[in-house]
Amino acid sequence: MSTHRLRVDWPNCKARGLCFELLPELVSLDEWGYPVVAGEVTAELLRDARAAVRACPHLALRLVPTPPG
């Protein structure tokens, strides 16, 4: 099964924090409110991860396939 991870489009991220609200399992916020995204999106978190991607008001979060290797 292919695996995914979250990638932030950093120049577009404006620290609104919705990703953290919706996906605290994988996203924490640094001291300035910008997301710190952890590791791989597990199968059970995939739905929530998709919701976080959709909710980002700046379209700055994407779910991408984990590169091989």
Partner: peptide, 9 residues
């Protein structure tokens, strides 16, 4: 100055 972690960090 476009990426938050760089701009602040």
């Amino acid at each position: 100055g476009r990426c938050g972690p760089c701009l602040n960090g």
